[in-house]
Design a protein around this nucleic acid. Structure first.
Lengths: 210, 210
DNA sequence: TTGGAATATTTACATTGTTAAGTAAATTTG
DNA sequence: CAAATTTACTTAACAATGTAAATATTCCAA
């Protein structure tokens, strides 16, 4: 029925309004600013209306978490054009760092905050966006090993390690734990890139110098 | 004056009561359970009395953050007995992981949550406990380089990288982002140790095989 | 004993997430 | 088209939270 469809669409539109308002709020001033009432203010509805479109606040955060993963994918649009798998892995790392530092609030939702994982546990236990990203990483690491850019037989373990490394960099940085290491803010990102360079150079198979 | 001293001591005792109560609360049920009112209930004072001993909740969290660093030091009591600096670095990593996984709430305060760093920014900008830990790490990495266990000339950069790596492991684990990589909970810690092994083996100077 | 400082409590307020009840408009049904 | 029902939204309210101001109590020195 056409009328049904239109209603569905309107419902989705208001959901989008809510999400956009939430994004605006936390982009501009962090998560403390994301309250149901402020969202409602922005979209010019009453606070309780929000609950007609989302079960609770955590569900909103989870939806934003999904948006974050889409955003991160955009950062990786240039990956397929890189043939050398180790270079590709390196670029993935750079993109990951750039994404995290340029979108710290999204990054928090995706990899730090508890709420999205709680919701996911309640609703099927599938962390689809995360799993997807992991799959790409693992494929790249596997290729690196097949083509002898990396030594080792366990792409699983190495993928986990690579991810931990870049996540460590980003999460320490956005939670202000690196100020001792890098007092000047302008040097933070360069330092992180340097660290990534060191990492990639170090794990590269030294025998594969042609 | 002796009477002054006794009063000082009593003040410190109540502060300790407050901190112990807070620890009990978040150990038993996580941070959601740490509220001024629950703390007050536990120590059998009224909620506002807490404010006579701490400026606000963030200051309590920051004090707990300090306690966490003391606890972490205890994990490292065995380090001085290890002569080989690379082995020592390895053990530091293991201890770090063990501490984080066994005390996730403290770990959060020390390396993930915003509040303590906010307080520190307001009161002098010195992250003393953190700086101290970093100093130990840097000394070890420096020794590794001097004795040729690690290649490279920048202990600063490598220390940052090592820390990022283990922090990445721990923080992904305690925020439940590793369930895809390691579905069974019992295998999580072994996997993290394996990852650390891989890391240390990989960064070790390959030329230094005697 | 009394007055003032230190310590504690009572009351209160604003903000938060969230639920329950009510209302007005849109839609379906007869 | 009129009545009934569903939908979309709002108002009012609740409980929990951090915290401030006003008030009360305790304690010690003069």
């Amino acid at each position: 029925m056409g009328i049904q469809e239109r209603k569905e669409k309107q419902k989705l539109e208001i959901r989008k309004l809510i999400l956009d308002a939430s994004i605006k709020l936390f982009i501009e001033e962090g998560f403390g600013n994301v309250t149901i009432r402020k969202i409602a203010d922005l979209i010019e509805y009453s606070p309780t209306t929000v609950y007609l479109y989302f079960k609770d606040k955590d569900e909103i955060l989870t939806a934003l978490h999904d948006v974050g993963f889409q955003k991160m994918q955009e950062y990786n649009h240039d990956l397929p054009s890189i043939n050398n798998p180790l270079l590709r892995l390196h670029k993935m790392g750079e993109n990951y760092i750039n994404f995290g530092m340029e979108n710290p609030e999204f990054y928090e939702l995706m990899f730090i905050m508890d709420e999205p994982m709680k919701v996911i546990e309640e609703t099927g236990c599938e962390w689809k966006p995360g799993d997807n990203a992991i799959k790409v990483l693992k494929a790249t690491v596997t290729e690196c090993m097949e083509k002898n850019y990396l030594i080792g037989t366990d792409p699983h373990l190495v993928s986990l390690s690579v991810w931990s490394f870049v996540h460590g960099l980003v999460s320490l940085a956005i939670r202000d734990r690196m100020e001792k290491f890098v007092p000047e803010k302008e040097l933070l990102l360069p330092m992180m890139r340097q660290s990534l360079n060191w990492f990639v150079n170090t794990i590269e198979n030294p025998a594969r110098n042609q």
